[in-house]
Amino acid sequence: MKRPVEIVVLSDIHLGTYGCHATEVFQYLNSIKPEILILNGDIVDIWQFRKRFFPKEHLKVIKKIITLASKGTKVYYITGNHDEMLRKFSDAVMGNIHLIDKLVLNLDGKKAWFFHGDVFDVSIQHTKWIAKLGGWGYDFLILFNRLLNKWLVKMGREKYSLSKKIKNSVKGAVKFINDFENTATDLAIENKFDYVICGHIHQPAIRKVKNHKGSTLYLNSGDWIENLTYLEYHDKEWSLKNYRAEFDKTSYVEEALDPMYDLSALLPNVLK
């Protein structure tokens, strides 16, 4: 039986990249019955799209989202930087699917502000080609990290995250994350939002933030590349959850990394 939940927030799935854990996304979506599904940016990675790599597991996620919408779930697709091409269609409505750039909801008398967060990223605003190059580099770093971890497991050693090590050791990266969170919360407090919910920085978080003007609850849904995290709102409470902790670890399967998938061949078979 599928678990009912009022609101689910997913972000930074990056369908179409080697690092995406689409199998796990599908399993999670298949386990719930949400009233509202909020896709908070970078769901399909149009920046790094390769027509020779879009596995059927990735297409099944898209099909599952459409199925949920057809069965009554209200789906809000908030655009991010990796799927910014969709912004030309913002405010489009297709049945229960709403394509938007930001979202404000009243949740049990409290105001919630949802947006991806790339608007705060100066590197994207002014040097987009560098940001795109960095995205490719990050994708291949994740691919190399997977291969490394398979070798470590065979050697009886613990898995290791190269990207987290880099983020935590580079002062500029730590400062960027802190600046991002401070900017988001300052704006939320200034505009009297009780909740501010973001993605973009791949850093899952939920915490109360206060300043001299007031307070807000900052939430970040993380990502489905490294952290496999998501947010749920139910019975007036927010929770930050991790796929690996919530699901049987034996069901966690590393996705096949075959770059020779032909998208045109997969489409008729998966979507029929």
Rank of each mutant, 00 (worst) to 15 (best):
K208T: 09
Q27Y: 05
E254R: 10
L141N: 02
W129V: 05
V8A: 02
D248R: 05
L15R: 04
D91V: 04
K64L: 11
A92D: 14
I38F: 12
K56T: 10
E84K: 14
G156F: 13
K51A: 09
L29M: 14
C198S: 13
K88M: 14
A188E: 00
K60V: 06
F193Y: 13
L263E: 10
D42Y: 08
V8L: 10
E57F: 06
Y18W: 15
W47C: 05
L231V: 05
F49P: 02
S251Y: 14
K192R: 14
L271H: 10
K210G: 02
M155P: 02
W136R: 15
I13C: 05
A184S: 11
E24G: 01
I97W: 15
Y252T: 00
R244D: 06
E6A: 01
K110Y: 03
K51Y: 13
N227F: 14
I65D: 06
D42V: 00
T127M: 07
K154W: 01
F180T: 06
H200Q: 11
K150C: 05
N96Y: 14
G134W: 04
A22Q: 01
G19K: 03
L105I: 01
L143S: 06
A205H: 08
D108I: 02
G172A: 10
I46G: 03
I78K: 05
K159R: 11
I62D: 02
D83F: 14
N269M: 05
K60G: 04
T183M: 07
A112W: 02
G80W: 15
K171T: 03
P55A: 08
F180Q: 09
M260P: 00
K71N: 11
K208I: 03
G16S: 04
D121W: 11
K128P: 00
D258I: 02
L107K: 00
N145P: 05
G222H: 13
T127N: 10
F120W: 09
L68C: 07
M85A: 12
I7H: 00
S251I: 14
K63R: 15
I32G: 01
D258G: 00
E181W: 12
V153G: 03
L15V: 03
K175D: 12
I206K: 15
D108M: 03
C198E: 09
A256G: 02
A184V: 09
G135W: 13
K33Q: 10
L99M: 12
C20W: 08
I201Q: 08
L267P: 00
E24V: 00
L240G: 07
K2M: 03
Q125P: 04
Y76T: 02
H21Y: 05
S221P: 05
N30T: 07
F144S: 06
K128I: 01
N30H: 09
I13T: 09
C198L: 13
K88E: 13
E84S: 13
D223G: 04
L271R: 08
L29A: 12
A188Y: 04
A256E: 10
D248C: 04
Y233S: 01
L99G: 12
K33M: 06
I142C: 15
K71L: 06
S264A: 11
N227T: 15
F247M: 07
E254H: 10
D45V: 04
D101S: 15
G137N: 09
G72I: 04
V44A: 12
Y28G: 03
N81S: 10
F114L: 10
G214P: 00
N30D: 13
